[in-house]
Structures are given as C-alpha cells and as structure tokens.
Nucleic acid binder design. Structure first.
Lengths: 195, 195
DNA sequence: TCTTTGTGAGTGAATATTCACAAACAAACA
DNA sequence: TGTTTGTTTGTGAATATTCACTCACAAAGA
C-alpha cells in the first residue's frame, strides 16, 4: 500500500499543509494552493485529480513518514523506557522542524468531509498506537512503569496530553519553545507513571 | 456581557451545532441551516445578521452555560477531590445529553479563518482552568493527590486525555457509551495521581 | 394597524474543475 | 548536426455550481 509521491506532489502537499495550519480549512482553496505554489490554478490538476486527493495524499504521506521514522529509531535491544522517550522526542523533533503539518493532525476541519479522510485520520492514530502499545507493555512487564493501568490507557494518557500541548502551541501562534515544553511534558508524565 | 438569546435563536444555534458536529464545518451553510430549521434560507436572516454571528452566539452561549453549570454544582465545603470528580461528571453528562455541541466545544483548530473562534477556544479552556486549577491546588494541599506535579500540569493531563476521548468518540461516529468510558477514564486517571 | 416572521426570486462573488493550447525538453532518427 | 515526435508541466479562458446575502412582498397575531 505504498503510494509513490513525486517531488512536485510533495511540494503541493507541503503548501497545502501550510495553508491548512496557518489559515484554516476555509482557506484551503485551489486558488490559494496555486498562489502558494506560484503557478496557475489549473496547474494543480497536473499533479492531483482533485482537491480531496491532495488532503488524502497528505495524510497518507504523514502516516508513512511516521512509520518509517519510528522503524528507524526503535533499535531492538534498547530498554523499553528509552524507546518510549525516543518515540516522543522523535515526534517533538518532527513537529518542531515542520510545524506546518500540525493542521493535518488536528482534523476538525477535515472531519465529516469524506469517509476516506476520516479513515486516514484513524489510520494515523493506529500507526502511533502500533508502536506505542508494545513498548508500554514491555515497560509494564519489566516494571519500568506502574501496572495499575493497561498499556492502552497509558497510551491514551500520553497521546492526549501531547496533543493538547500541540494544540496550545498552535492556538498561541507557536509562541513558546515547543521542544523544551514537549520534553518537559513527557519527562514529567513518565515520572508520574514510574513506580 | 450577558447577551440575551431568543428561543428561535437558540433553535438555530442548536441546528447549526448539529450540522457542525455531524457533517463538519464545510456543511455549515445557510442552505443547510434553513433545511434543518425547515424554513427558507432568507428566514435565517430574520434572527441573525450573518452566519458568523450564529457561530459567535453559539460559542457565547456555551461559555455562559458552562460557567453557570460549574458555579451551580461546586458547592463550598465539599471535599476538593469530590469537586474534581463532579466537574468532570458534569462535563460528561452535558456531552452525553447534547453531543451535537461537541463540534463547537472541541474545534481543535481554526474553524473559519477568523481570529474570533481561535479566541473563543482559548476562552473556553481558560474557563475550564479557572475552576479546575484552584480545586487541584486544594487537592494537593490536602494531600488528596500527589504533589510531584504542579496543579497546572495535572489540569493539562486531565484535560488532554479527556479531549482525546471526545475525539475518539467523534471519529468512531459516537459508537461507544461516552458516559461509561468517560467516567472510567477520569476514575483511572485520578487513581493514578492519588498518593 | 403595526410588528414579527416567514417566502421566493434574484445578486455578485467565489468555488472546483475542464478545456484547448503553448513552452520546455528529451529521445529517436535522418 | 538538425529535424521530428512525444511527454511533462505550465497557462488563461470558460464552465456550472454553490455561496452568503438582499429585497419586495405576504400572512398572522398583538
């Protein structure tokens, strides 16, 4: 299921992500995408058959990117608690480097638009879980974190508070140092769930 | 700053909230609002001067509703830990009863392109904090919850995982029992932060 | 009668998408 | 080398549709 994306398509995806993140779903028009790309509106259709396909490709790209990134950093043999820290610091680094992708993971504007997009969002969250849950289970098994909650619930806790931090960052127009606050949050939360 | 709202205006606000929550911001059009209200498009303008004013009134109404609801249930003299549980169970009850308001309260991002909604989200979160933080401080002071984190951080944790539960509820088309899952989540989380 | 609340027809602007066409470039061939 | 041919990537004009919003008018209750 690996869709190949041309360099030009990636440019359009990033341009669209910027509009989505900084101006909102209402501004994600072919006109604005073309303006951001500095070419005519019709040129967009040389690379995507419709606007919806762009959003679809954007979510697909993010899911793939996350998948390969995690697979790369999670070396077997490492301590599960270190893996846990690593997965979040990788996440923090990615959004700090490419904040314009944040609009895509807060899908409210996209929600209800189409089933395909709805599914893509669920797939994105499933990818995150796919890596997080086994690590958390290892942590529980090796007594690195408490056993009073299921791995699923710990994942929910971590993902939920991480998401809220990202949301706050966006709502304050990226005012604070996301890397710092993000690492603080994860450190604090892990300390809380450590026996 | 208390704006009075006519019964007909409230009907339009609720109709708009339903469209927003169940079909997304892209479907929130005068045409659809009129259809939901079962009258002509032009009739909408008998009650609101513009579409944006509807959204404005909706957010104002919700902020007021939340404020008075909290003020009502938080009786002085109660145990802070009970107040904490109460504030969330009140929240859960409200969403379970009127799930169509979720799209308005949890927009997760720029709904329009307007600063207005951005501010409204921040104001709503501030209201939530206004009640939550003092309660959490009391909890810490009376040793009802751990003191290894600041009240602010506990609030972040609780609000973040609560928001994620709401998102999951929406993404699964309101499939699971929100009251049950919500209460479980809060119970589990409170247990985790109890010394 | 006057105010409230509705209707239906109409407006201009914005929307996504399509179309015929052109410039740039590379491969194939004389 | 020069010519032909095809492909990719762009353009500008035109399309139908949808959008928020306006206005003259009507029913109906106070």
């Amino acid at each position: 299921m690996t869709t190949t994306i041309t360099p030009r398509q990636l440019e359009i995806i990033e341009a669209s992500a910027k509009i989505l993140t900084y101006s909102g779903i209402g501004s994600l028009t072919i006109k604005n995408i073309a303006k951001e790309m500095q070419f005519a509106e019709s040129a967009v259709y040389r690379h995507f058959s419709s606007k919806e396909k762009i959003v679809e490709a954007m979510l697909e790209y993010l899911a793939q990117e996350m998948d390969t990134r995690y697979a790369l950093i999670l070396l077997p043999g490492a301590e599960p608690i270190d893996k846990l820290k690593l997965i979040f610091s990788s996440h923090i680094d990615f959004f700090a480097a490419k904040p314009f992708f944040i609009g895509a993971i807060f899908p409210d504007g996209l929600l209800g638009g189409s089933m395909l997009i709805n599914d893509a969002i669920l797939r994105l969250m499933a990818t995150m879980k796919k890596y997080l849950i086994p690590i958390l289970e290892d942590c529980i098994a090796t007594n690195a974190i408490k056993n009073e909650m299921a791995a699923e619930d710990f994942a929910h806790l971590l993902m939920g508070s991480f998401r809220l931090l990202v949301l706050k960052w966006r709502l304050t127009n990226f005012a604070f140092d996301f890397s710092q606050k993000g690492n603080e949050l994860i450190t604090n939360t892990i300390k809380l769930i450590t026996p």
